[in-house]
Each structure stands twice: as C-alpha cells, then as structure tokens.
C-alpha cells in the first residue's frame, strides 16, 4: 500500500462521518448537552470545495518550546511540577496513511487537576510554572511529540460526584476543514475513565479504547520521563485508485 500515495487525489471528498461511532449531540448524563444539542436532523451533502479545502500551518509557526509544556510557561531555570511524561504518536487517516503537516493544539489541567482559567473554581493549587497549552505540527511520517506533566483528575459540576479522568484535550487540523476534530486523550489504567459521563457519551467501547494512551516503556527516557503513545485518526478521503488496489490485494 505504501508507494501509492502519489496517486491519491489530494482534493477528493471525505468519507462520510460514522455518526454511530461518534458521540451523539444529546447525551443526557452529560447535562450540558441537553440544551446545547441540535434536535433536527443534520443536512447531509456531498463535500464541495468548501469542505475539502482547509488552512495549513507551516513549521515556521512554532516556537522552540511550543511542544514543551513543562517549560513553555515556566520562569527561567524553573519547571512545572508533576510526573514528567512524553506524549507521542501518529496522526493517520482512515486508510492508515500518515497525515503530515497537521497542527495539533493541546491543553490540560496541571498535575493537581487545576486549570489556569478565569472560570476555574477547583481549590487545587495553581502551579506558577504551568500554563497548560502546547502545540506541534506532524512531520512527514505523521508523527508528533509533546513533553508535559501528567494532568490530575478533577471534580466538575454535573452529577453529585463526578470526576474527570486525567486527560489532555487535543485539537487537530487535517488537510480539509471537514476533518476538523477536537478530542481528549485518556491514560491507560485510570478507573475514572469508565465512570465519566463525557467519555460515556461515546456509544462504542472500542471508540473509547481508541482514546486511551498506552504506557510506552520503549520510548521512556530512563531517569527522566515516562512515555505514552497515542495515535489519532482523521477522516479519510475517497479514492477510486486506492480502493481498486485494495480489492486486488
């Protein structure tokens, strides 16, 4: 399958979104969705140029510390407090091909579960050396990498005692605006994952498992930082050539 990339139309329509795999707009256990979920059917339409085009961001955008959340907000010579981790992986399309030049923007709570935001009310301490944002752009092989601290779980006003599992928010731009995606990454072994109403808005257990990063000892830096591996899949594009080839295999 490799080596076929050049035959792929760069401007083909995207494969339709699988709305049974994606969370529905209304997930009543996540109370905020009740008044914010459209109730009419979505209007389906084949992609036009307005959907298959999209903004692309160059590597020149990035500053030296953009992908290093331990240091990008810290005072000189200081560092954020918490478990040092590397979060890395690939951005792929639905055919399994790497997607280069994807801008990833991430945000997260600090090691104590506290966000640096004016609406944040959790009593956990702010870390003066942690801002909570980072970004990077995938390389030719679709790879990305962040250095950060593991975010803490935090309570949130929903049910009487709801806690978010440790998570990192991810925003991704593919090659077309219809690929625009925001999701969250969870951590292997966290018992809060399966209790969370936001996680459980996703109907298929396999789709949830796809959002759980696995501890990756092979890429751990000994005496420094543990690694977690997290691959993300964006919508693929239609391609007659590619399909013919698959069928011939």
């Amino acid at each position: 399958m490799t080596g076929n990339t050049k035959q792929m139309p760069k401007d083909g329509a995207f494969l339709p979104r699988d709305r049974n795999w994606q969370p529905p707009a209304l997930a009543p256990a996540y109370k905020s969705s009740i008044l914010r979920s459209p109730q009419q059917a979505l209007l389906s339409l084949d992609n036009t140029l307005s959907e298959i085009t999209g903004p692309v961001f160059g590597h020149s955008l990035l500053g030296r510390l953009d992908g290093d959340l331990i240091h990008n907000f810290a005072r000189a010579g200081e560092a954020a407090i918490g478990e040092r981790i590397i979060v890395h992986g690939k951005v792929l399309d639905e055919a399994g091909r790497p997607v280069p030049s994807v801008l990833l923007e991430v945000w997260q709570a600090n090691a104590g579960g506290r966000y640096r935001h004016r609406n944040e009310r959790y009593q956990a301490s702010l870390d003066p050396n942690f801002g909570g944002c980072g970004r990077c752009i995938t390389d030719e092989a679709g790879r990305y990498r962040f250095l950060t601290v593991k975010p803490g779980p935090y309570p949130w006003p929903n049910g009487p005692n709801d806690w978010r599992p440790s998570h990192i928010h991810f925003s991704l731009f593919g090659t077309g605006f219809a690929q625009r995606l925001i999701t969250q990454m969870y951590f292997e072994g966290d018992p809060l994952i399966w209790r969370c109403p936001i996680v459980r808005s996703i109907p298929d257990r396999r789709a949830i498992e796809q959002l759980i990063a696995l501890l990756d000892m092979e890429n751990t830096i000994p005496m420094d930082a543990r690694a977690y591996e997290f691959d993300i899949v964006l919508r693929g594009r239609r391609s007659t050539m590619f399909e013919n080839r698959l069928e011939g295999n």
């Binding site: 994606q22 935001h117 996680v199 996703i202 399909e243």
Partner: peptide, 25 residues
Amino acid sequence: AEDARRLKESASQTAGPYVHIGLMP
C-alpha cells in the same frame, strides 16, 4: 469507499469550558 477504511475516525469529545487555554491562550 467503505472498503478503504482500515481505521475508524477518532471519536470527538467536547472542547469543554476551558478550550481557550489551548486555542486562544
């Protein structure tokens, strides 16, 4: 076209109330 799918698109999750931290710091 469905046959070309080896993987499923990652599931979306809400941007939440603190989206500005990441996208408009």
